[in-house]
Design a binder for these strands. Structure first.
Lengths: 235, 235
DNA sequence: GAGAAATGGATCCTATAGGAAAGTTCGTAT
DNA sequence: ATACGAACTTTCCTATAGGATCCATTTCTC
């Protein structure tokens, strides 16, 4: 039971490089690949997704595809019609988008305030690093927009993590809000203003001011939902 | 590409009744069966769950078991160790239980207030029906306790539903709080006091008083976490 | 010509078989 | 007696085959 013998075991972690050769990558890789396909709308919202077809296209057997689809169905990214196959989840309606931001307004300002209360020097450093990691690219390419979305996602997840509540973090992650928003608005939405607001939120948290952090986050979400996202819905 | 023709889904919701007779029961049945096994601790927390073993025990092939396990892993009820199999999720630590109730205190009082704002005669009737459906059984059997847990779950889900936010409802359901609490405390926890509090919450919502509903829900959760659940942790 | 029934194709669902990796056990050398 | 090494067993992971169901097209009848 107790393996206390010191047998060097230097060959395992000789290099810090992750040497995981291929640990059950397939099902997880399929999961990520399909999620990417959904995000890029290479699979149109509402369209059918054939298990066999996906398996052929990805070059794997249907079994891992089935497993990945089951997980995506659990995350409400695909819908299962029991004897008729899977379909990509439709785009969010305007009511659902409002509901999503109402939920974010419920948990994220709270998370920002708690993060400010619990802030450490390490946490502040991580926050500033994330803010600085994303310099506004002048090119308005698809890839740049996608990278900005990924940064926005990491930023909000990091705040939920710094709030010290795994439940809040999980609840936020399970909304998959960035995926839904990205699917809704193919064109550029996140821009300089968003990055400036991120900086303000980060500084409020880093300075340990819960009230300012909560307000900054609330303002950020309200601006995003009412000024940036909703107008695009009607166009 | 352009799927402009969508003449379907017109006769789907003609009747609100779900007309799904028995569609693809197996994978879903396995999912429910394993969840039940987890809840009753017939599978001990942290113990290994063999795909093949479960398949033999349930009399099905490993494929639907694999699918069910993938969904349960997505719900964080089991953990997957990539080339070593699945394990039942361990019991909640005291910190995790505190975190769970902190999250419930964040969303459920809000949901109670919104439910009170939006209450209709139909909603009030459903609320009262749920409260009245569960008369306190004098017998302290395992089955009776389980029924009380199920009632408590339905009651809180109903309030989240009446709040009109699918996000909040999903977030609540995905905590699987009743399953975790049931696994933690095999002995009786829910009793007469809980049912009385449910009645007070229901009346506050039914009478359309958001402030009273929010306070009643907050009190209910605080009493449950600090007076009923936490003391049992140390014993 | 229009509607309904039957047939063909495609898809999903379940079961079984084979290959690979990890854990375990036993034997042997020090 | 202990530690190391090799073979075995168990388990998971992937692939393929067969049975059942649903959708679409065609054909027959009124």
């Amino acid at each position: 039971m107790g393996r206390a013998q010191d047998t060097e075991s230097a060959s395992v972690s000789e290099f810090g490089i992750e040497m995981l050769p291929r640990r059950s990558a397939l099902a997880d890789e399929v999961h990520e690949a399909v999620k990417e396909l959904l995000m890029d709308q290479r699979i149109a919202p509402g369209s059918r997704m054939s298990i066999d077809g996906l398996a052929r296209e990805l070059g794997v057997s249907p079994t891992p595809v089935r497993e990945a689809l089951a997980r995506l169905e659990s995350a409400e990214l695909v819908v299962k019609e029991p004897l008729r196959g899977y379909r990509a989840a439709p785009l969010l309606t305007r009511e659902q988008l409002d509901d999503l931001y109402r939920f974010r307004l419920l948990i994220e300002p709270w998370a920002a305030a708690r993060a400010a209360e619990r802030i450490t020097s390490d946490g502040a450093a991580r926050l500033r690093a994330e803010v600085d990691s994303c310099d506004m690219p002048d090119e308005n390419s698809y890839a740049a927009y996608k990278e900005l979305t990924a940064h926005d996602d990491r930023f909000h997840v990091l705040i939920a993590e710094l709030a010290g509540s795994a439940q809040v973090r999980s609840a936020f992650e399970r909304t998959h809000c960035h995926l839904h928003i990205f699917r809704l608005y193919f064109d550029r939405v996140i821009g300089t203003k968003t990055l400036e607001e991120h900086g303000a939120i980060a500084e409020s948290i880093a300075s340990g001011d819960p009230g300012a952090a909560e307000l900054a986050m609330r303002t950020h979400l309200e601006v995003a939902s009412q000024q940036r996202l909703r107008p695009l819905y009607d166009s």
